[in-house]
Amino acid sequence: MTLTRRHVTGALAAGLATGLALGRSGPARAGRTVKFSYQRSSTLLTVLKARGTLEERLGRQGFGVSWHLFTKVLEPMNTGAVDLHADVADAVPVFTQSAGAALTFYAMEGASPRAEAIIVPDESPIRTLADLKGRTVGVSKGSGCHFILAGALRREGLRFADIRPAYLEAPDGLAAFERGGIEAWAIWDPFLAIVQAKRPVRVLADATGLSSYNRYYTVNDSFAAEQPEVVATVFAALAEAGQWVKANPSAAVSLLAPIWGDLPPEVVAKVNERRSYAVRAVDRAALSEQQAIADTFLEAGLIPRRLDATAVRLWQPPAGRG
């Protein structure tokens, strides 16, 4: 299928509108309502929501469920506006930790380094990362792609100051890349898959060797302490959803494509193929990569002080569920 700019822009807008509609609270049930946030990239939470899994399982425990869509996740994470938060890519927890957010990490998705990349148009004279010197490169400031771009340049003996960064949020970056307003773009899925479906592009580097592109799931400290059985139920459901997406790729595409604004099936399939969706408990040793991100962002002036990125609260699943 040939993608036009109008199609993609419309799909993104429709996906947001659909998400807002789906974000309304479900029927009230006896007991407390558990509030979940999610975002466009929250594949596994979207699967659970669409299938009513948590409403059914938590309902048996006497809890209702409400869903809240956010395009910017830092505010609800920092303020505790919901109980369990949208999964976020590796860079986001650096900012929540810097802000002193009262968050416990209860799950993570395993490595998906091919889900973010530095790309140029296929016809570009830029052939290598070294060729980015002096070029205009689009990137979302403070994102995981900001980190991999800095790391990729460092690997080539370049500094971030050797390029001309254009700080653009993903939808604006897509438009700029299409019209030639930027010469290269550091971007993640689904935008990476969208642009690859629209035109030939060359991948200068993905995150392999630079970042694992783990995703983290967090819950408010107080909720984790008061309702560990709810956290355990959600953890198990996420792990099952990840296994289902990988075992049933066609069914997953059919479920997700309409929710994501009727994106072409091949785009959704590519996103799902590149993500691991392997949910497991958070191992503190695995957070060493978070330290590298925090140090890079401190050097860039994006956070005010040095962090020990491994010094976060971790929830561990009951024996046999991790």
Rank of each mutant, 00 (worst) to 15 (best):
Met1Ala: 15
Arg6Thr: 15
His7Met: 14
Ala11Lys: 06
Ala11Gln: 06
Ala11Trp: 11
Leu12Gly: 05
Leu20Phe: 07
Leu22Ala: 12
Ser25Tyr: 02
Gly26Pro: 08
Pro27Lys: 15
Arg32Met: 12
Phe36Leu: 12
Ser41Phe: 10
Leu45Glu: 13
Leu45Val: 15
Leu54Arg: 13
Glu55Ile: 07
Gly62Leu: 09
Gly62Ala: 08
Val65Glu: 11
Ser66Cys: 09
Trp67Ile: 09
His68Thr: 11
His68Val: 04
Leu69Ala: 14
Thr71His: 11
Val73Lys: 11
Leu74Gln: 11
Glu75Leu: 10
Glu75Thr: 13
Pro76Gln: 07
Val82Ala: 08
Leu84Glu: 10
Leu84Tyr: 09
His85Leu: 15
His85Lys: 13
Asp87Thr: 13
Ala89Arg: 10
Val94Phe: 05
Thr96Arg: 12
Thr96Met: 06
Ala99Ile: 06
Ala102Arg: 15
Phe105Thr: 12
Phe105His: 12
Tyr106Gln: 07
Ala107Phe: 06
Met108Lys: 15
Gly110Met: 04
Pro113Gln: 10
Ala117Lys: 10
Asp122Ser: 14
Pro125His: 07
Pro125Cys: 06
Ile126Gly: 02
Thr128Ala: 05
Arg135Tyr: 07
Gly138Glu: 09
Ser140Asp: 09
Gly144His: 06
Ile148Arg: 02
Leu149Val: 04
Ala150Glu: 10
Ala150Tyr: 06
Ala150Asn: 09
Leu158Gly: 05
Asp162Pro: 01
Tyr167Val: 00
Leu168Trp: 00
Leu168Gln: 03
Ala170Ser: 09
Gly173Ala: 06
Arg179Phe: 11
Gly181Glu: 09
Glu183Asp: 05
Phe191His: 14
Leu192Lys: 08
Ala193Cys: 02
Ala197Met: 00
Val201Ile: 14
Leu204Lys: 03
Asp206Lys: 00
Ser211Ala: 13
Ser211Ile: 08
Asn214Leu: 14
Arg215Phe: 09
Val219Leu: 11
Val219Ala: 12
Asp221Gln: 15
Ala225Ser: 13
Gln227Val: 01
Gln227Asp: 03
Ala237Cys: 03
Leu238Pro: 00
Glu240Ile: 01
Ala241Ile: 08
Ala241Ser: 05
Gly242Asn: 04
Val245Cys: 10
Pro249Ile: 06
Pro249Gly: 09
Ser250Asn: 10
Val253Thr: 11
Ala257Cys: 00
Pro258Asn: 02
Ile259Pro: 00
Trp260Lys: 13
Leu263Ser: 03
Val268Ile: 10
Ala269Thr: 01
Ala269Val: 00
Asn272Asp: 12
Arg275Gln: 13
Ala281Gln: 07
Arg284Trp: 01
Ala286Met: 05
Ala292Met: 08
Ala294Arg: 07
Asp295His: 09
Thr296Gln: 11
Ala300Asn: 07
Arg306Cys: 03
Leu307Phe: 08
Leu307His: 03
Thr310Asp: 09
Ala311Gln: 14
Val312Trp: 04
Val312Glu: 09
Trp315Tyr: 04
Gln316Pro: 01
